[in-house]
Design a protein around this nucleic acid. Structure first.
Lengths: 254, 254
DNA sequence: TCCCACGTTCGTGCAGTGCGAACGCGCGAT
DNA sequence: ATCGCGCGTTCGCACTGCACGAACGTGGGA
């Protein structure tokens, strides 16, 4: 798999994707606004919007364009194709209920962790993540659990592409340290996040894999005040690995 | 609003959107397959896929490309921006529970009804609709309820664009008949679907609107065997209009 | 009433797109 | 083990169709 990024690309398409990305950030924008933001002429943007609108990827309300409801269809389809989705929701709901905290599931894609589902227990913290949200893997328990089960060269590719951005004093920003951590995680079977992304936030995660491939990972997140001692080091890891196993087994029959 | 479709469009973008649409139908496809399906050269498709992949709109697994998990993010964002969404889900859950049937909410876009949410009561029929699904409006109670509250010229535009496709003997395929029906619906406040799309399936719908604009519509659907007599002609219409009013009122404060 | 800013249209030049041939590779059949 | 088919990939070339920017029509605010 030569993931070289030297391939010839289509610039007109790049412009359109930039437009979509812009409309994802802003809730509606006009032609002039988009044109100045992307450094293109108004005429150019107009043509792109006409194409997007005819294909119903965008809606025009008066003078502003918005992303259309088609993305609901696309999102739904993509989710439906994840065969493990139903197994995951069921198991995560059980897990979050049993420990009262926030349980999440993510899958790797393009070298990042993509959140798929979350289930909040009674005492659960609020999390900024929502389905589809993409995060770097090196600073998440979820992410490290997944990296630990990828070939080393794939991990190196990911580091090359995304770097090891630092967020807190605990973030792992050195490749060698990361590889050692991944080794530990692989042997132990689960991963911790000791406030490596956000101060005060701790997590435990376990990988979900088939015989030879990593599928994703599940995690439990909570405040440092509750996540310590035996609860954090023993009880949660055991719960999370058990749930991951349940998912692995059940997903083989769907 | 000159909805003329004569605008100059960007063909390269059209190709890319065709690719996305193809990947929406099939679950994964290779370069050669896509190229032959869209009558383009392999080299061309390759360039488009590279662009889509770099922007993470598509994932490459070995030799097959799939739609990426980004569409979850897009779908989620689009849904979050519908301010009435929470109000609708709450009210529809109540409604479906109270009558035991299938309750649905849809919004108009590009001249079609787009399903946003459905809630199944105990006895509810299975429906093929899922969020994002787009249907012609003239043969749905939901659709007619929405059309009834649009300016006549807008309705004419929609007929021009989509026609009045017939599905059953009861489908309204004549514009004049449709306009009469819409008039009746406007006066009465709710719409019926008397097996106009699918034999044996009947529905009642009420519009959800602000002071001057139609937002969407809610409906209750069920089998012709249960949907008859006073229940169908009186009780359900009253329930559905009441729910629509609740949504209208509650959505003003969000 | 005027004027600015918006979306829209269109003719033009040339960048960039699409093509098709050629290449390397993996897999299955022989 | 070998061959050959079919896959994804690359690249040079011709020409298309993209992006530009000026010009136009329009609607809303001062």
């Amino acid at each position: 798999m030569a993931t070289h990024d030297g391939s010839r690309t289509v610039e007109a398409v790049q412009t359109t994707l930039d437009i979509i990305e812009l409309l994802l950030e802003r809730d509606g924008a006009g032609i002039t606004e988009i044109a100045s933001e992307l450094d293109r002429s108004k005429g150019t943007i107009h043509g792109h919007m006409a194409t997007l609108s005819q294909n119903e990827f965008v809606v025009k309300e008066g003078e502003t364009y918005r992303l259309s409801l088609r993305y609901l269809e696309l999102g739904e389809k993509v989710r439906d194709r994840l065969q493990i989705y139903d197994v995951v929701t069921e198991e995560l709901d059980d897990l979050s209920a049993s420990c009262g905290e926030l349980a999440q599931f993510a899958m790797p894609e393009h070298g990042r962790a993509v959140y798929i589902y979350k289930s909040a227990g009674e005492k659960a913290i609020q999390s900024a993540s929502s389905p589809g949200k993409r995060e770097y893997m090196h600073c998440l328990s979820l992410g490290k659990a997944m990296l630990a089960h990828m070939p080393r060269e794939r991990v190196e590719e990911i580091i090359d592409r995304h770097g090891l951005v630092g967020y807190t004093d605990n973030t792992i920003t050195d490749p060698d340290t990361l590889f050692e951590e991944l080794e530990t995680i692989r042997e132990r079977g689960y991963a911790f996040d000791r406030e490596e992304k956000i101060e005060g936030l701790r997590c435990v995660a376990a990988p979900v894999k088939t015989k030879e491939e990593i599928i994703g990972a599940i995690s439990i997140s909570g405040p440092a005040s509750r996540f310590e001692g035996e609860f954090y080091e023993e009880e949660l890891p055991s719960k999370v690995t058990r749930s991951a196993n349940v998912i692995e087994i059940n997903s083989q029959f769907s």
